[in-house]
Design a protein around this nucleic acid. Structure first.
Lengths: 136, 136
DNA sequence: GAATTATCCTATTAATTCTATGGGATAAAC
DNA sequence: GTTTATCCCATAGAATTAATAGGATAATTC
């Protein structure tokens, strides 16, 4: 299940990408437009900024804005920042790899085998779609 | 993230599928072989039986066994029974559809658009793999 | 038919993760 | 220096997941 964090983050990014001008948009405006708790959204935008996806400006006329063009923001990046690993089990994760403690040999594990395929198929989608591609 | 329930369930099914004879295997044996808490596994096998994937036999010489041939058990079924929806958001789920309360129009939603693609790609994997296919 | 074996079933607890909120600090604009 | 809006940390509340407990039921064995 996709977390609300990711869902809201994606919606906020979409909203920012759909702006005519690339000027700062306030949290309150995004929250209102997308029906999101403002405080919750605040923390989400903060992590998006810290990861270099968004820029921000304080004070009057401040807010958040995209640093790059939407077509330069792959979904792989967004999902990994907001949701974490794309893989459903750590033992098939590219960026968050971890060994299973119950599994003596990955190559003999059916879960590993299946989840490798699932990861690859998801990765294929995320790699081939940027923020620009999912705008409606 | 894949739940332990699904992971353990898949491992148990794999173990049953790898048996020479199709005779009942006891929970204790599966649990030991796959390093799973026996009590937890018990509840998992119970749901697999109630869904018609496994059969069971009580008393001495009892246990669980596959009802169908592994090649007749698609991953779509197993995942839906153990993990629930394949889709990451209810609004793109085939079997567990639900409307988003925050979203006025699905067709205008970027999350919907993206997650539809992800669901399709996962579905493709699950539909094209049976229990027989993931045996190592 | 009594003892043994193993599943069946429900309820509950423990642990973890996710969602949301609160309150003040910091910085920019005017 | 007042206003505006992000920054930041901490924590509370909710929901889900993982695991355990204990006894009921049914089949086999002798």
């Amino acid at each position: 299940m996709l977390s609300k964090k990711t869902k809201y983050g994606l919606k906020a990014l979409t909203y920012l990408a759909s702006q005519e001008k690339r000027k700062p948009v306030q949290i309150a405006e995004i929250a209102k437009h997308e029906n999101i708790s403002q405080k919750f959204l605040e923390s989400i935008l903060l992590t998006l900024r810290k990861t270099g996806i968004l820029g921000s400006k304080k004070g009057k006329g401040g807010g958040y804005y995209l640093i790059k063009d939407p077509s330069e923001i792959p979904m792989t990046t967004v999902i990994r920042v907001l949701e974490g690993p794309i893989a459903m089990v750590p033992c098939v994760s590219l960026n968050f790899y971890e060994q299973c403690d119950d599994c003596p040999d990955e190559n003999e594990c059916s879960v590993h085998k299946l989840m490798l395929m699932v990861r690859d198929s998801a990765l294929d989608v995320y790699r081939n779609n940027t923020l620009a591609d999912i705008l409606t």
